[in-house]
Simulated assay, not measured.
Amino acid sequence: MAMKKLIIFLLAVTFVCGGNVIFEDCGSAYEIETVDIEGCERTVPCHISIGAKTNVTVTYTAGFVSHALSQLAVVTLNSVQRETVVSPRACEATWCPVQTHNINLYRARMEMPTNLALNSRGTLNWSITNEFAKRLVCFTVTIQTRSPLNEYLKNLIFD
């Protein structure tokens, strides 16, 4: 019985459902509460159009103060990695210094690269680090790329 409880606990720690997106925490020092990616639903994979500008919102609780932040978002498809353009800078996307023991809000806009394979499944890995290169927020989302035309037709049919 103790082993069963341990397995359930480990699964809960490593595979988190929060917000609109199912994500996996990849070693965050802060506690991620939710991850929302505009246009993604609570299904796997999260469909994102290449070239799309997509809003990303993360809520998290900080256990310690950080004064300077940097961010990196990388898409991996077929073992090929591409950085996404993320704006604004991390300290403009959340309050700096990061407030401890409160729920903090991080809002950014990600631009998917246009040089990605269509209809391919892969991952989006997002990390935010502090001035000491400590990984504060890190999550991975399973994604599938699609063309902007697919996005347009989906919206035309279902809206």
Score class of each variant (00 low, 15 high):
K154M: 10
T54Q: 15
C40S: 10
V13D: 00
G18V: 10
L149W: 10
T140M: 07
S28P: 04
E111W: 03
M3P: 02
I48A: 10
E31V: 10
A12V: 03
N78D: 12
T61K: 15
R42P: 09
I32V: 14
L116S: 07
E151Q: 15
G18E: 11
I157S: 00
V65H: 09
N102R: 15
E33Y: 06
A108Y: 00
N130A: 10
L69N: 07
R121H: 10
V16H: 01
V16Y: 00
T61F: 04
A12F: 15
A12R: 14
K154P: 00
L69W: 05
L156V: 04
C91E: 00
T54H: 12
V141M: 05
V44R: 07
V65E: 13
G51F: 14
G18C: 11
E83D: 13
A93P: 08
L11I: 03
V141F: 04
F132N: 12
P113R: 06
N119E: 12
G39A: 08
L153M: 13
P113L: 07
E92S: 10
A90D: 10
I128N: 01
L156M: 08
Q81A: 10
W126D: 00
G19K: 12
Q144P: 01
R82M: 00
L156P: 01
V44Y: 03
N78S: 12
I48C: 08
N104S: 15
T140H: 00
S49M: 06
A52I: 01
V98A: 05
E151V: 13
E41M: 13
K134E: 06
N150T: 07
V74F: 11
I128K: 00
V16K: 05
Q71H: 15
I48S: 05
N130R: 05
E111K: 14
S87W: 15
Y106I: 04
F64M: 06
M1R: 04
R109V: 15
I7C: 01
A2D: 13
W126C: 02
G122I: 05
F9D: 02
A12K: 14
R146F: 05
T61N: 13
L116K: 05
V75G: 10
Q144K: 12
N78Y: 08
A90I: 10
T34E: 02
T59K: 14
G27V: 07
I50S: 02
Y152H: 14
W95S: 15
W126G: 00
K154C: 03
V137C: 05
